[in-house]
């Protein structure tokens, strides 16, 4: 039992990949998600419809299927078949998927801002873009923190799906050690690492929430 803990360094290497993947997915997800949220709020029919369809597709199909499709399916659409690594496929799949969820979170936060704020901004002569950038979106930050924290934690765990396309993330490394050592107790240190990551996230997001609460 004690001896499984000697695999900690290897597990930590896997954890590093898990963390990298999560951070990349959340950064791209927030940027792309913000654009999609603005699209959903836009009066432009084409932009609005595109955003709706995007979210509809990526929320409505399994993430694992999206991952398979991007890794195995998309390269076959080209002649000769496109070549990219599992890394690239995973980054793309997780970024695209989390963007869909974050778009709805961001849209809800923006819509929860009092309508009087947009009116006050317009009465001061601001354009829609200026009002969004300077007044509405910054106010949505604090309301975004709890659901984005939630999404972040989900993402940390969902990244374990990448073990299936041979990405050496924490899950995959754990599984490999288990096969070689024939000792399922290895899942215990692995779980501790997952818990440590999500605990850090939880605390960090709580701190962030406090910081942004000064004006509420």
């Amino acid at each position: 039992m004690i001896h499984v803990f000697s695999f900690f360094p290897r597990l930590l290497q896997g954890a590093l990949i898990t963390i990298q993947l999560t951070i990349v997915a959340i950064i791209f997800g927030v940027i792309f998600g913000l654009l999609l949220a603005l699209g959903r709020l836009s009066k432009n029919k084409i932009v609005n419809k595109f955003s709706w369809l995007y979210i509809w597709f990526f929320r409505g199909t399994p993430l694992l299927m999206q991952l398979y499709f991007i890794y195995y399916g998309v390269p076959m659409l080209f002649d000769p078949p496109l070549k990219y690594s599992a890394w690239v496929a995973c980054y793309i799949a997780f970024s695209l998927n989390s963007a869909a969820y974050l778009a709805e979170i961001i849209r809800a936060a923006i819509q929860s801002i009092d309508k009087g704020q947009m009116e006050a901004a317009k009465a001061l002569g601001m354009s829609y873009g200026q009002a969004m950038r300077r007044i509405i979106v910054p106010q949505s930050y604090r309301r975004l923190i709890p659901p984005v924290g939630n999404e972040f934690i989900m993402l940390v765990k969902d990244t374990s799906l990448v073990s299936i396309v041979a990405m050496p993330d924490l899950m995959r490394v754990t599984h490999e050690i288990e096969s070689v050592q024939a000792n399922a107790a290895i899942y215990l240190p692995s779980a501790i690492i997952y818990l440590a990551i999500t605990t850090v996230c939880t605390v960090a997001f709580e701190k962030l929430e406090k910081k942004y609460s000064v004006y509420e």
Binding site: G116, Q117, A120, L124, M126, Q130, I135, P138, Q139
Partner: peptide
């Protein structure tokens, strides 16, 4: 035209002076 609203509609994420200068700078 300047407008004053019934419910004030100050920008809650900005301090008093920031509220006042925001539009003069951006607009």
């Amino acid at each position: 035209l300047g407008m004053v609203f019934q419910r004030f509609n100050l920008f809650p994420h900005l301090t008093t002076i920031q509220n006042i200068i925001e539009a003069t700078i951006t607009v």
